[in-house]
Design a protein around this nucleic acid. Structure first.
Lengths: 544, 544
DNA sequence: TTATAATTTAATTGT
DNA sequence: ACAATTAAATTATT
């Protein structure tokens, strides 16, 4: 139909309502959504405007031969007619406003994909509590805006290599879009997130525009990546799908969730290398492997990563990871478990309880796991094996390899041990990360780290992305490292990383100091010793 | 070659501005034609755009599910920033805008036939100076729109009777589509027109949406009809083919022409009867014969009707009338005469000069007389009998009955006597209507008028369709009649109108006041006396 | 005024 | 041809 949208609009009240109720966080942005829907959001726009006034747009008497003035001149004929025109009640076009929270997410989704498919838009809509039509329009307008704003276009579907001459001179600094920040050669799927923790190391996405913390998935490289932008430089760690031995999803705030990934070994760390003198010149940047740049190199020791982000997205990602993981035998028939951390009051209406299975969406992409998000207490407690904690979606598939599927982790959130750091981000929830969670993997001696190639051209002014970025809601401490200690492996990783010849076979078990590769001081083979694994937030050391 | 678009829009940056000038209208009638033939505007849509960027639409790497993304993410539309972007692909999609004039016509064509055949679209395209593809798309989109806008479907191909249950309950009042406006029981063919004049009485089609003035042909009833929608009510006059004694076609503006019909007797007048209280309820409307409702009842006295509309259509109509007129003997071999009132500069390019004869279109409908419109001076002056004024297509067939075929009327337009009323409508051309043109008929005392049935349920607020509709380009004077004078025949028509028993045998030769039937005051047999026939435009009297 | 939500129209792609 | 979508152009709101 032409609208699917229009279709949507034909039954405004009904549809919109449903949709909203579906997703989880309705309450999250509640007041607003309600208004909209209540009134029939989609003002039905076109649905039946009797005599669209706009129709007679621009009488522009111009005629045939006349070329007419551009679109600009247009006097509108509206007036020319008799006054009766407006007589017909004019459907008020309700104008909704996107909330800042929604905006953050929308921008991230946009960064990841400028033109989401209908299915995806639907997910997004549900996630954010927006009407599909609104979402669609938002993307449309956003695209238009992006286009206007200069040819900065960094189209999302950038296929292969980054065109060498990418920065065309109009980088007004605006929209240093995500893609140019991450400059991956392969297409990626952005996973909206607001918070990442590994042990006590933690990063929070601060504002929508600056892509402080970005999580994405690269199917081509088959890895998950956490990208951090700090002080103008990029840092990232890649987690090959194959390293993931377990995943866990926990509902956090209404629309947000916590995805925990348990790895079999540490991620691969990278630092953005900037040969040219100007740090803003993105043309020549490239990624270089390096040693663990997390504070205290916790990521090398602690193999559990917790990511907070949009619930729908995370679940979707987990599910897809699941489906794509080759080394699983049970992958296709692990029943989903429902969990809810929300109180009954906050539960969205189970509007689609009748949908028992997963449906395929038009794209062939698989289904947005709304079911996971529809917390229907009746089902939640009656479906699936009872040996799984009811509030946690713990996928047994990833446990298969390295751990017994029987012992689910206790839900890490919300937990009584949650820290109470004050945060302004509504979607953010503090949560505890028990040290022991890396248990399964650790038991098998999977901890490892690698030596970095070391020839970095990174200025010494770069700050390592420790827990406190320049702008943090918490008591951020600006950290600037001079990278005094070159990395050196001190422990042997369980597996051999054949594709990276220069990796040292040893990784430090315990590091005594924060490590950071410096272009001049770090050499292959160097190992860094840091302090104890679980460093408290307060221990963030400034190396400036 | 292939990429049509590419060619059209090679100019990215400027395109928006350019666009306007480029397309359609400009070339509309002159330079453009060349373009078409040359490279075939139609962005050839499907043709074969080799690498339409859009082609690779959305790889949608999105969900993790897909793995092979590598290359997929293809090419995104906008170059990501590199300066090279412009080099190659640059085929933006040019966006043309249909001019208001074109729109008027398109809407009328649409009203008559929602899905014109390719042949017909071609006619339309040429007439309006649009590319065929554009026209095709326009109809497509228009159909989609119509469909959306409610089931108002008035399908064009309605062959026989109008399905009784047509108005299904969702008549929101919009799109009181043409067919529901005219509510004829027989299928009709709409003749796009913008202006109708009978003596000094004149109606102008104001906007595309409101079908102010509609001319149509009803083969079943074998009559031509002028329908007028004013103040929510319908008026119409039918001209049985048999009343037509002469027709004349004159080219006016590039795409438009003037068709003059000379009748042997006055048309049949009708007024829409609305039994139900609400004037917008179309369900119960029906047509009732009535007396001449033209200002000053000019249509009763003056038997020449001038209709301005799309040239191709009018010629087509005239030709068909011609072919269908049973009382003609020479009907099949009257050679067409070409005439042109346009200056050489404005002449469309004879893009199809090589087409000598009429082709058949897919529908079996006969051919669009493009030849009539292609003014090729060389042919124009060398073809056909020389006793016919070169600039006028005067069909001898209709002269056969009542007049000698030898004396063609002087072209009524453009003529030195043309009135200079200021008009904004580009396609409109003022023209003179010499009183004497009714000559042939008048000489035979054909003037007549009839008494109306008179039992009208029409509210007194209905305005008669005088020359000045509520909204007019000219110094329109809003006219609202109270119909103070009941109609009464005062003259005997030359012929007896057997099918309408209630007609009065007499018709007034001169009327002193505007006549309008009022539901309560008019009674059969009444006759109205009006003023002089040729009333000047300024004389429009407001009867409110 | 700008910025952004919403609408309408022309065009594209895929079926 | 139609359905679905979208870019482009506009309108309208805040």
């Amino acid at each position: 139909m032409g609208s699917k949208e229009s279709h949507t609009q034909i039954y405004p009240a009904f549809e919109s309502r449903r949709r909203v109720s579906l997703h989880i966080e309705t309450p999250a942005f509640s007041p607003k959504v309600e208004d909209d829907s209540g009134d029939d959001y989609p003002p039905s726009s076109a649905s039946q405007s009797p005599i669209t006034p706009a129709n007679i747009r621009r009488p522009r008497s111009a005629s045939a031969g006349s070329d007419s003035i551009g679109p600009s001149s247009g006097p509108q004929r509206v007036a020319s007619g008799s006054g009766k025109k407006n007589e017909r009640e004019r459907e008020k076009r309700k104008r909704s406003r996107v909330t800042p929270d929604q905006l953050v997410h929308l921008e991230q989704f946009f960064a990841g994909d400028r033109s989401p498919t209908a299915a995806r838009r639907k997910e997004i809509s549900e996630l954010l509590g927006m009407h599909e039509r609104q979402t669609q329009i938002w993307f449309q307008n956003r695209r238009a805006k992006a286009k206007l704003q200069g040819g900065k276009a960094k189209g999302r579907p950038r296929s292969a290599e980054t065109p060498p001459e990418a920065p065309p001179a109009l980088s007004t600094g605006y929209d240093e879009d995500l893609h140019s920040l991450i400059h991956e050669d392969e297409p990626v799927t952005i996973i909206p997130c607001t918070d990442l923790s590994v042990g006590s190391w933690r990063r929070i996405a601060t504002s929508p525009e600056k892509h402080d913390l970005v999580a994405y998935l690269c199917d081509a490289k088959r890895c998950l990546t956490w990208f951090i932008h700090s002080a103008g430089y990029g840092f990232k760690m890649e987690i090959p799908f194959s390293y993931i031995v377990d995943t866990e999803f926990t509902n956090a705030a209404p629309g947000s969730g916590l995805a925990s990934f348990t790895l079999s070994q540490p991620p691969l760390f990278y630092l953005e290398h900037v040969p040219s003198p100007e740090p803003n010149e993105k043309a020549l940047r490239y990624w270089k492997r390096c040693a663990d740049w997390t504070e205290g190199q916790q990521a090398t020791k602690i193999l559990r990563h917790d990511l907070i982000g949009s619930a729908v997205q995370l679940v979707h990602v987990l599910r897809n990871l699941h489906l794509n993981t080759p080394n699983t035998d049970v992958q296709l028939h692990s029943p989903p478990y429902y969990e809810s951390s929300a109180s009954p009051m906050e539960l969205p209406q189970p509007s689609m309880v009748s949908t028992p299975g997963f449906q395929q969406d038009g794209d062939g992409a698989d289904i947005p796991p709304e079911e996971f998000l529809q917390i229907d207490p009746r089902r939640a407690h009656s479906v699936g094996p009872s040996n799984i904690a009811p509030r946690s979606y713990h996928d047994p598939v990833f446990l298969a390899q390295d751990t017994p599927t029987s012992a689910p982790f206790p839900p890490s959130f919300p937990s009584p041990t949650a820290r109470s750091a004050p945060l302004n981000t509504p979607l953010f929830f503090d949560y505890s990360v028990p040290d022991v969670h890396t248990g399964e993997s650790d038991e098998q001696g999977m901890l490892s780290t690698y030596a970095a190639p070391l020839e970095y051209g990174v200025p010494s002014s770069i700050s390592p992305p420790y827990s406190a970025p320049p702008v943090l809601y918490r008591d951020g401490v600006q950290i600037i490292s001079q990278y005094p200690n070159p990395p050196s492996p001190n422990r042997v990783p369980q597996r051999t990383f054949e594709h990276f010849g220069q990796l040292s076979p040893d990784a430090p078990m315990l590091l005594t100091t924060p490590y950071y590769p410096s272009e001049s001081s770090v050499a292959p083979g160097d190992v860094i010793a840091s302090g104890i694994a679980a460093v408290s937030y307060e221990s963030e050391s400034s190396v400036q």
